[in-house]
């Protein structure tokens, strides 16, 4: 009796420690990653001012003298991300509403598995398909000299963010208690009115989370954008011109830099910029979710 009790205590203690250690470990890893990023990234600013880095329009890292201005890359990322968001958010939310509120059960199951399959396609594969189909289509439809544009990237990334947005938004909609819908319908609301006035507002914090995760996926995406946005490091006049994004720059150039050179450090500094952008998006999402929950 006494023994089994202390044995249980020991077991509890070990399990508790293990969970504690894993929690601590994940925090330590994040800190180490950030420290590494910061150490390498900030080394750049010994030689180049932050101002020139963030607002410089020329990105010629291997010319002499080199230029490390990432404004065009920031603008490129912004174009692609905003474009993808504008495409993916309305369609994603509308699909989620259709799947959870309108579709008959059989169609719902088919669509849900379809979305999961979509989410599982590696981005290289999507990028390749995009290069073969989307890029020529954009070129011909809009009579451009090249189909490798910010617009193609936005379409592609919108498509890639869709599964994330749909599946999380759909979960949020499904979690809305059925009795709200019943109440609305019993008051003579149409199905559409009950969705618009009751179900969507009740699910809004989950939908915001879905949108933010979708945008997070878009900003972090590398392979597909590298393959279809044209990678021209200049500020575009409109969305139908080639752009180069922050992520594509890091991925494309990391292999050819000399360790410890300014070029090498500048790629880490781009990493810091990406980190800060993602952090801000998460912050906004958190804020939106918590304000709603109050």
């Amino acid at each position: 009796m006494q023994k089994s009790f202390s044995q249980k205590r020991l077991q509890e203690w070990i399990i508790e420690r293990c969970i504690y250690m894993s929690g601590i470990a994940s925090i330590i890893f994040v800190c180490l990653i950030f420290l590494f990023l910061a150490k390498e990234g900030f080394s750049l600013f010994k030689n180049i001012s932050i101002f020139d880095f963030l607002l410089g329009q020329k990105w010629y890292p291997i010319s002499t003298p080199p230029f490390f201005g990432i404004l065009s890359l920031i603008v490129g990322s912004l174009y692609v991300t905003l474009g993808a968001t504008v495409i993916a958010v309305p369609i994603g939310i509308a699909s989620a509403v259709y799947i959870s509120e309108v579709a008959p059960p059989r169609v719902r199951e088919i669509l849900k598995s379809g979305i999961e399959v979509l989410a599982a396609i590696p981005s290289v594969v999507l990028g390749f398909i995009g290069m073969m189909t989307l890029v020529p289509w954009v070129k011909n439809t809009f009579h451009l000299s090249t189909g490798l544009t910010a617009f193609s990237g936005a379409l592609m990334l919108g498509f890639m963010a869709m599964p994330t947005i749909v599946s999380i938004a759909e979960d949020a909609l499904n979690a809305v208690p059925k009795r709200y819908k019943e109440a609305a319908l019993a008051l003579g609301a149409t199905r559409w009115q009950s969705i618009w006035r009751v179900i969507l507002p009740a699910a809004s914090s989950g939908i915001v989370a879905a949108v933010m995760l979708g945008i997070g996926r878009v900003i972090g995406e590398t392979m597909a954008v590298m393959m279809i946005t044209g990678n021209a490091a200049r500020i575009p006049d409109n969305i139908f011109q080639p752009v180069r994004t922050l992520t594509a720059t890091v991925a494309a150039e990391m292999g050819e830099t000399v360790r410890g050179s300014d070029h090498y450090y500048s790629l880490f500094a781009i990493g810091i910029v990406l980190f800060i952008i993602t952090f801000c998006i998460n912050l906004i999402a958190d804020f939106a979710v918590h304000r709603k929950a109050k």
């Binding site: 208690p177 009795r179 709200y180 019943e182 109440a183 609305a184 319908l185 019993a186 008051l187 003579g188 609301a189 149409t190 009115q193 006035r197 009751v198 507002p201 009740a202």
Partner: peptide, 30 residues
């Protein structure tokens, strides 16, 4: 029209997750 004529109160109170005023005004608005 039928549901405007025949209102229903449910077993478990099911006000909308909206303000008191919005609950009362729900039908007026729709």
């Amino acid at each position: 029209e039928l549901r405007k004529k025949v209102g229903m109160v449910f077993q478990r109170p099911n006000p909308f997750p909206l303000s008191v005023a919005e609950n009362v005004l729900f039908s007026v608005k729709i």
